[in-house]
Amino acid sequence: MIDKSKIKIHILRTGLVKLDKALPFHGQSRNPLAFTGLFRSEVNQLILPVSSYLIEHPKGLVLIDTGWHTNIRQGNWQELGLQTKINKGYLPANWAVNEQINRFGYSTSDIDLVLMSHLHSDHASGLELVKEAKKIMVSSEEWNIANKLPLVYLPGEWKNINIGTYEYNRQGIGAFNRYYDVFGDGSLLQLYTPGHTSGMSATLVKDIDKKYIILAADTGYTKES
Rank of each mutant, 00 (worst) to 15 (best):
D3A: 02
I7V: 11
K8D: 02
I9R: 03
L12G: 03
R13H: 15
R13D: 15
L16N: 02
L16F: 13
H26S: 14
G27R: 15
S29P: 00
P32T: 11
L33T: 07
A34N: 12
T36A: 05
T36C: 07
L38Y: 07
F39E: 12
R40L: 06
Q45V: 13
I47P: 00
I47H: 02
S51I: 14
L54W: 02
E56W: 08
H57C: 04
H57R: 06
L61G: 04
T70Y: 14
G75H: 04
W77T: 07
G81H: 11
L82A: 14
T84S: 07
N87S: 14
G89I: 10
Y90E: 09
A93I: 13
N94V: 10
A96F: 10
A96H: 06
N98H: 11
E99D: 12
S107D: 14
T108C: 09
D112S: 07
L113S: 02
M116V: 01
M116T: 02
M116N: 08
H120M: 12
A124H: 02
A124C: 13
A124G: 11
A124T: 09
S125V: 04
G126D: 04
G126H: 07
L127C: 09
V130L: 01
E132D: 15
K134R: 15
I136R: 04
I136Y: 00
S139R: 08
S139T: 07
E141T: 03
N144S: 11
A146M: 04
N147M: 05
K148M: 13
V152Q: 12
V152G: 06
L154I: 15
E157S: 04
N162P: 01
Y166L: 11
Y168C: 00
Y168D: 00
N169L: 05
N169T: 09
I173S: 07
G174Q: 05
F176E: 06
N177E: 08
N177T: 09
Y179G: 01
Y180V: 06
V182R: 00
G184L: 13
G184D: 10
D185T: 11
D185V: 14
G186S: 11
L188I: 14
L191T: 02
L191Y: 00
Y192L: 11
P194T: 09
G195W: 10
S198P: 01
S198A: 14
G199L: 12
G199D: 03
M200K: 12
M200C: 07
A202G: 03
A202L: 03
A202H: 02
V205R: 01
V205S: 00
K206P: 01
K206G: 01
D207G: 08
I208W: 01
L215P: 00
A217T: 08
S225F: 03
